[in-house]
């Protein structure tokens, strides 16, 4: 058993543990997959942790912002990381979970001028922004300009509503949408960790199902 921090398993040992869980075929698909996470807040940081644990081979992590004290109630950062760029802080945390996952980070604001270039290496893109107009911008951009990629977006996960209202729908062949569709952060008490994590988990699981070839 591995017990001490200085006894980190080798890449092969780590990979064999994943294969033992997932089977060789699914793990081969996960190894080859490249997933972009756009926004590293409540959705994106939790998506990235889930995909890293699941053994997705390559993550492209994009966010311009720094870790703030108001993020800690729902995002995968630590109090010791306040003020750091989220790309840097999340990389540190993911590296402690799975040091052998390939990661690319971009500390920039995604907009219509740079999105295609930032996302070109991804097979699947997670929209994980906070702002509704940014969500719509990225969704339209990916579906119009990057038609060979899959998009997993989210809308509606604020407040104290039932966890059972969070669901994932396939809108087009390449566009999946998670959330309850209506719970706006502006209307309620804001975001509560488990419900945001639940929506992030929907997105991450949808990503893995797409990688596995399960599209419906």
């Amino acid at each position: 058993m591995w017990g001490a921090a200085d006894m980190i398993p080798t890449r092969d040992e780590w990979h064999n543990a994943l294969k033992a869980r997932h089977g060789a075929e699914l793990q081969r698909r996960l190894d080859r997959a490249a997933v972009a996470v756009c926004g590293l807040g409540g959705l994106g940081s939790n998506i990235a942790v889930a995909l890293t644990r699941a053994g997705v081979g390559r993550l492209i992590l994009i966010d311009f912002d720094r870790v703030d004290i108001t993020n800690l109630h729902r995002q995968q950062y630590k109090i010791t990381q306040l003020g750091k760029y989220k790309t840097e802080a999340l990389s540190e945390n993911l590296n402690e979970i799975a040091p052998y996952t390939a990661r690319e980070t971009h500390t920039v604001r995604i907009d219509e001028s740079n999105a295609a270039e930032l996302l070109k290496g991804a097979d699947i893109i997670c929209e994980a922004f906070d702002n509704a107009e940014c969500k719509a911008m990225l969704t339209n951009l990916v579906l119009e300009k990057l038609p060979d990629k899959y998009l997993v977006a989210a809308s509606g996960m604020a407040g104290l509503g039932s966890p059972n209202a969070i669901r994932t729908r396939r809108i087009t062949d390449r566009f999946y949408l998670s959330g309850d569709g209506v719970s706006d952060v502006a209307d309620d008490i804001g975001l509560v960790a488990p419900r945001v994590m639940l929506c992030a988990a929907h997105q991450a699981q949808t990503v893995i199902r797409i990688i596995a070839g399960q599209f419906n």
């Binding site: 969500k135 509606g156 809108i171 945001v196």
Partner: peptide, 10 residues
Amino acid sequence: VEVVSFVGGG
């Protein structure tokens, strides 16, 4: 037609 109208939060 499906209109996806995004709400804020993430």
